[in-house]
Amino acid sequence: MEVLVASGIGLLTAVGVYLVLRRQTFPVVIGTVFLSYAVNLFLFATGRLTVNRPPIYASGASGYADPLPQALVLTAIVISFGMTALVVVLALRGFLETGSDSVEGDPAGPADGGDDATVTTDQARP
């Protein structure tokens, strides 16, 4: 079973990495979703695998799964949702603003003007 889980985590990582290396926004967003799956599972796996022993306190229980990684992962899942939402909205706004959903940028480098405007405008005014 451990081999299945480990290989599954590896597979999710590989797919995630491959997708975030794509040129358009949407595959990158999906890639981050895959990476979240992989990371959450990995974190969960640090508590080792336990079957049929949920961390619900009961008097007759013979043992429990490690609750700490579970608590960490629970919030991590919700936070990854927040991140996915933010990234996809960022992609959406970028697309609406520029009409392109490429994440590759201009190969010639950043356009001049733009961020240095604050410097130049100050100098321009007497």
């Binding site: 451990e2 081999v3 889980v5 480990a6 290989s7 985590i9 590896g10 597979l11 999710l12 990582t13 590989a14 797919v15 990495v17 992989a38 990995f42 796996a45 640090t46 080792r48 695998l49």
Partner: peptide, 12 residues
């Protein structure tokens, strides 16, 4: 992927 899988297996 291989790296993460190996690491996960080593931990598990």
């Amino acid at each position: 992927g291989v790296g993460v899988a190996a690491l996960a297996l080593a931990i598990l």
